[in-house]
């Protein structure tokens, strides 16, 4: 097969795997749009925000900060915390790329490392072809960005009681991300319940309650996740990932 045909095959393969991801993204980013609308973000701003960020938790955190008129430093720190997991994902993904892959491809792949795109990238055989990632991104990015835009438009047009109900959607999704791992990992359930409790207390205790939403999220996340990491460090999954990948190569 010629290189050109390979390129096309990998791109189309990526697009195919990107379709279910894109459909899910549309629903999530639509709810994100509902939240963005309440922060006064315009449909066009939402479109660009989602096109450039590709992150549900990160963007929601950003929206909350924008709503509270936070400082630029605050929002930068908040995004750093909310999206820190991508650092870990990109580190794993870098092991999946051919060592001589040119810089420009690494820079382009890096643009759209999301939980789901990372997932299909890691599941792909070694070496991961960049065109596969571009195919998946060609479907997922527009669907993510348009979903946000339509969410904001819907938020502007629908009656207040419907918008109020729809604004619960993003929380329902967050809950569906944090709860399922708790079935097997009871320590995680404890971490989440403690987070709920301390977070609520922080919002009522005099003095602390005057902290801005973004500062509260930053402090609580670092404190609780840091404590959890000390009490119950995770096993070396990432190590075994590399080992199994090397076995495949051999």
């Amino acid at each position: 097969m010629s290189t050109h045909k390979n390129l096309k095959y990998n791109f189309l393969h990526g697009m195919k795997d990107g379709v279910p991801i894109g459909l899910g993204y549309f629903a999530v980013s639509f709810s994100l749009g509902i939240a963005a609308q309440s922060a006064g973000i315009t449909p066009f701003q939402g479109l660009i925000m989602s096109m450039l960020n590709n992150a549900s938790a990160g963007e929601y955190a950003g929206i909350a900060a924008i709503k509270a008129n936070a400082s630029y430093i605050e929002i930068a720190l908040l995004i750093l915390i909310a999206n820190a997991r991508y650092l870990l994902m990109s580190c794993s993904l870098s092991q999946k790329l051919s060592p001589d892959l040119p810089l420009i491809h690494r820079m382009l792949i890096g643009f759209n490392v999301t939980d789901e795109i990372f997932g299909i990238g890691i599941a792909h055989s070694y070496p991961l072809p960049p065109s596969y990632m571009y195919g998946a991104s060609a479907v997922s990015i527009p669907s993510w960005a348009l979903g946000t835009m339509f969410g904001i438009i819907a938020g502007n047009m629908l009656p207040v009681n419907i918008v109020t109900a729809l604004s619960a959607a993003i929380f329902g999704m967050f809950i569906a991300i944090i709860i399922p791992p708790c079935r097997e990992n009871h320590f995680m359930l404890g971490v989440i319940l403690v987070s709920f409790l301390i977070s609520s207390l922080f919002a009522i205790i005099p003095g602390i309650a005057s902290l801005s939403e973004s500062v509260r999220i930053i402090i609580l996340t670092l404190l609780i996740a840091g404590a959890a990491a000390i009490i119950r460090p995770v096993s070396d999954e990432a190590e075994s990932e590399v080992t199994s990948q090397k076995e495949q190569e051999a």
Binding site: A57, R85, F174, I178, T221, A229
Partner: peptide, 11 residues
């Protein structure tokens, strides 16, 4: 742990 805690305290 970061993403789970961030999502919890944002919810």
């Amino acid at each position: 742990y970061l993403p789970y805690v961030t999502l919890s305290v944002m919810t």
